[in-house]
Amino acid sequence: ECEVSGAAEVDGLKSMGSWLRGHGHLSTAEAARVVRTGRALQHLPGMTAAFAAGAVTAEQAGLIARVTEPEQLARAAEQGVDLGAVDTVLTDIARERPHADTATAVHHYLDRLDADGPEPDPTEGRRLVIARHADGSITGRFDLDAVGGERLQAALEAVQAGRCAGDERTRAQQLADALVQLADNALASGQLPTLRGHKPQVIVKIGIGDLAGPQVGRGAAETGFGATISAARARWIACDGAVTRIVMGPDGVPLDVGRSVRLVPPHLRRAAEVRDGGCVFAGCGAPTHWCDVHHLIAWINGGETSLDNAALLCERHHTKVHHGFRVERQPDGRWRTWRPDGTEILIGPQRTGPPLTTAA
C-alpha cells in the first residue's frame, strides 16, 4: 500500500525498497523480498491466506511471487490463463512439498507461459551481489551466462598461469588472489572510467602518527568504502601510493578557498569524502563515488566554496535539496534532513503512541 501510494517519495526516496533499507534497516535482499511478496499478495488470495496462517514460508511466498511480475501477468492474460487455478496449485505445492518442489513448479509454469517466445538475452541474467561485513571483509555471489563465465575463467586462469611449483594455496585461494590481481591491473592501467572527475583509486584515511609510527595499530585506518584496517596494512598500501595530507586548519591544505572558486577543487572534495563517508541525506547509503559536493548556501547567494559549506549528496538527493528538502550538519557532526513542509525525516522505528507500561 505504501508503494502504490508513493509514500517513499514523502521522505525523498525513490522506492519502497530503498525506504526499507534506509529507514527500516533491512538488508538489500530482505527489502527486495518484502516488496516483491507484497506486490504478489493482491493477485494471489490463496497464497495470501496460507502465508498469513503460517502454512507457507516467506521464502516460498517470495518465490511464488515471480508469477505476478508485470510481464508474466501480461502473458497470462494474453493466453487466458486462470491465475486463480495457478494460485491454488502453487500454494498447495508450497504447503505440502519441500521448497525445491515449489521452485521447480514455479520455473515449469514460467517456461510453459513463454514456450514460444524468443530466446532471452543471456546477459540479462547476470548478477553480482557484494556484502561487506563489520571487519571490512566482503563476501558475495554472482550469476553469469555461459559466455560471460567463460571470459571470467579465461582471465583468472591467465593471471595465475605463472604460479610456481611450490604454491601450496588451495584452488579457491588461487582464484581469489587472481580476482584481486585483475582489479589491481585494471586500476593501475589508468584506463577505467573516471568517478566524479577522479580516476578510481584505493583510498585509505589514517592519522599521521599512526602512519609514521612502527606499531600495528589495529583499527587505526579506514578505507574509502568504509572498511577498518590496521595502521600496518595502511603503511603497506602507502608503499606504492600517493600520500595526500589533509589538515582541518590553517597550517595545511587551504580547505576554505573563499569566493574566488565556485567549482569544488579535488582537495576539498577529498576532505568532504573523509568527513561525510557518503550521501548525508537521511536514509541514503550511497557511497562517496556516487556523490556530488553540494553548497549548503548556494554560491550565487554568497555561499563559500569551503568544507563548512559543503555536503556530499548523491545525484537523486542533490536534486531533492534543490527542490525543497534541506540538510544541515549539527555541531556534533551529525546530519539532519527536513522535508519541504518543515518536518524532519527520522530514521528507524518511531513509537508515536503512549509509553509502554508494565503491570506491577
Results as ranks from 00 to 15, higher is better:
V321D: 04
K14E: 12
G303F: 07
G6K: 04
E304W: 14
H23V: 05
I203P: 00
A61R: 01
G62T: 04
A232H: 11
D101G: 12
R339D: 06
A77H: 14
A172F: 01
V4S: 02
D101L: 11
G190H: 01
T88M: 03
H294M: 05
F281D: 10
R95V: 00
R95G: 02
V129E: 15
R316S: 04
G277N: 07
N185F: 07
D135M: 01
G348W: 06
P355V: 10
D121T: 04
W290F: 14
T170K: 03
D121E: 10
A53Q: 00
G38T: 11
T91G: 00
E273H: 05
D167A: 04
S260H: 08
L83V: 15
A311E: 10
A154D: 02
I138M: 09
T102D: 08
G224T: 09
W335I: 14
H25M: 04
H99P: 15
D256A: 01
D184W: 07
P254F: 02
A188M: 14
T194V: 15
D251T: 13
Q174D: 07
P200S: 10
G24I: 07
R66K: 15
E71P: 09
A227R: 02
S5C: 07
A65I: 05
H318V: 13
A212P: 13
S189C: 03
A186W: 03
V56G: 00
R163V: 02
G283E: 11
H289K: 13
A298F: 12
A227C: 04
T48C: 02
R275C: 11
V4G: 10
H108K: 10
R21Q: 11
L255M: 15
E222G: 03
A272T: 03
A94N: 07
H198N: 09
T104R: 07
D276G: 12
A231C: 09
